[in-house]
Design a protein around this nucleic acid. Structure first.
Length: 493
RNA sequence: CGGGGUGUAGCACAGUUGGUUAGCGCGCUACGUUCGGGACGUAGAGGUCGGGCGUUCGAGUCGCCUCACCCCGACCA
């Protein structure tokens, strides 16, 4: 037992390298042989699929359709939008050849030097360029607009340093690319999508977020305006969880995408793009998990309820199963995802610990004792509290309990963020609060120069101008110059 | 690309001033006893010690080279 615990502690230490000593390694992913890429294991992928399906339905409700564009982008496409190149073209994987051949010296295969591509292809780091290259052919009239497209895809950025879930070389994401006829409609769409992300984060991930606008320095290469949702992790650091960009007419101009408007005049199309990635899984882990492992909000848990039978022999198991099976049917009828773990190659204690590690929100245990008394033991993953309840009416109770867990996870995260958010008026306090792990609302003179100086001195960056922030002018706490409003500072992942 | 660190069984590690047959724990396999918080006993399987070259009678251990990974910077969702 002591050894087991030590082992668990070791796993905890191991995981802390990634997640700042917050949670135990929950075995969702592992590093692949390819530099900085991850293998997402089935249970981890099930969580991602749940996120995908939920987001997909939300997108479709706003009129967005899914499509798919090529993985490889001709290098020339990336040169079209100057600012985009400036911000993005650097850390990319490049395809230079199209064929291998057998090594004449017998050492396996080599790249065939004869097979050099005339133009290199870039493994997409994001798809704006190829999509706008395509939109040129799709958009001719105001009747073709708005064009609302989303793609679920993988992208690759040759990151110098990778971190599981938060910054892998290859990651899974969705990227929405919309084209609109007017600037107003376009801006409204960018705002709509950041609101959608915020709703997803709060309702499904139980993760409160600050909606805001990025500073000029932090915004997407080629965008007029970048909206962001920023979440606070358990150590007080910020994580950018989703973005939505108003790209103005930059990409339309770069790719010559015009339409004939109602007055029969040609006009450039207005563009926006928006995305969230497997980073959300990192956010989920770092927001709720504890030393026993994952804690999943019921709305995203692949398994919401696990039932563990406790029995001494096959006959007892049969009796327990007779009680469990109708309950399973009832729960499924209520839309609850339930697993009955009657595997006899693991003992109950092992299963308990294992499902805690997996973050299953509700656990039921039923043994011979319960059969006699007509009860069941229910445990909540978030509080680890156990209760013995009558079997009668348990399904309805579970549904309410799941909802309660969802709410209380959100409330707990919100309380933590509010407790650790400070309105600050001196540089001294600014530094002190950051060291404690906090969000800081402070006045700033609006210059990139000051922003970078603060980053160099404190490692804190401007996360955003909060959309519902305090708009009262003041004086910059770094330079004493006038400031239009308070901005949100934090250290970030 | 700079600075630091680690490579020994599936995982996590120990391995003395160089010494003969390379070890512990977890996991794995078989059998038995167990089963309400990660069970226990017995018996097993599993290693070109990251790779290469060198020093030596002898290298997991020393030297040089190389590769991979991790951490801190620059880059970034």
């Amino acid at each position: 037992m002591a050894k087991e615990l030590k082992d668990l502690t070791k796993r905890s230490e191991d995981y802390s390298k990634w997640y700042n000593e917050l949670v135990v390694k929950a075995d969702l992913a592992e590093q692949s042989a390819v530099r900085g890429c991850m293998v997402i294991k089935p249970y981890g992928y099930a969580i991602w699929e749940k996120m995908q399906h939920t987001l997909d339905e939300m997108f479709k409700a706003t009129g967005v359709q899914n499509a798919y564009f090529p993985l490889l982008i001709p290098k020339s496409f990336l040169c079209r939008e100057a600012e985009h190149v400036e911000g993005f073209a650097k850390e990319c994987a490049v395809v230079t050849h199209y064929r291998l051949k057998n090594d004449p010296e017998g050492n396996g295969v080599i790249v065939d030097p004869e097979a050099r591509l005339e133009e290199e292809l870039i493994v997409r780091p994001t798809s704006e360029t190829i999509i706008w290259g395509t939109y040129k052919n799709w958009i001719h009239s105001y009747r073709d607009l708005p064009l609302l497209i989303n793609q679920w895809a993988n992208v690759m950025r040759w990151e110098m340093r990778t971190r599981m879930f938060l910054r892998t070389s290859e990651f899974l994401w969705q990227e929405g690319h919309c084209a609109h006829a007017t600037a107003e409609e376009n801006e409204a769409r960018a705002v709509q999508m950041i609101n959608l992300y915020a709703e997803f984060a709060e309702k499904y991930m139980a993760m409160p977020v600050v909606k805001g606008v990025k500073s000029e320095n932090e915004r997407f290469a080629g965008a007029l305006n970048t909206y962001t949702i920023e979440a606070m992790m358990q150590d007080g650091k910020a994580l950018q969880a989703g973005t939505s960009h108003n790209l103005g007419q930059n990409f339309a101009k770069a790719f010559d995408v015009t339409f004939i408007n109602k007055d029969n005049k040609p006009e450039y199309v207005w563009a926006n793009s928006w995305g969230v990635s497997t980073r959300l899984m990192g956010a989920l882990i770092m927001t709720h998990s504890d030393d026993n492992g994952l804690v999943l909000p019921p709305h995203l848990a692949p398994i919401q309820v696990v039932i563990v039978p406790i029995y001494k022999n096959a006959d007892q198991l049969r009796q327990i199963s007779c009680v469990v099976e109708p309950l399973m049917a009832e729960l499924k009828g209520l839309g609850v995802s339930v697993k009955y773990d009657d595997a006899d190659n693991r003992r109950p204690g092992f299963k308990f610990a294992d499902y805690e590690l997996k973050g299953v929100p509700v656990r039921l245990a039923i043994g011979a004792r319960d059969l006699e008394t007509g009860t069941v033991e229910l445990m909540r993953r978030d509080t680890l509290e156990k209760e013995t309840l009558p079997l009668e009416g348990i399904a309805g109770h579970i549904v309410r309990e799941l909802e309660d867990i969802q709410q209380s996870l959100y409330q707990k995260a919100l309380d933590r963020r509010e407790r650790n958010t400070y309105v600050v008026d001196s540089y001294e306090e600014f530094k002190q609060r950051l060291d404690e792990g906090a969000f800081v609302l402070a006045h700033w003179d609006g210059t990139t120069e000051t922003e970078e100086r603060v980053k160099a001195e404190t490692k804190a960056t401007i996360r955003c101008f909060p959309l519902d922030g305090d708009m009262t002018p003041g004086t910059c706490i770094f330079t004493g110059r006038p400031s239009a409003c308070r901005v949100l500072f934090a250290r970030n992942y």
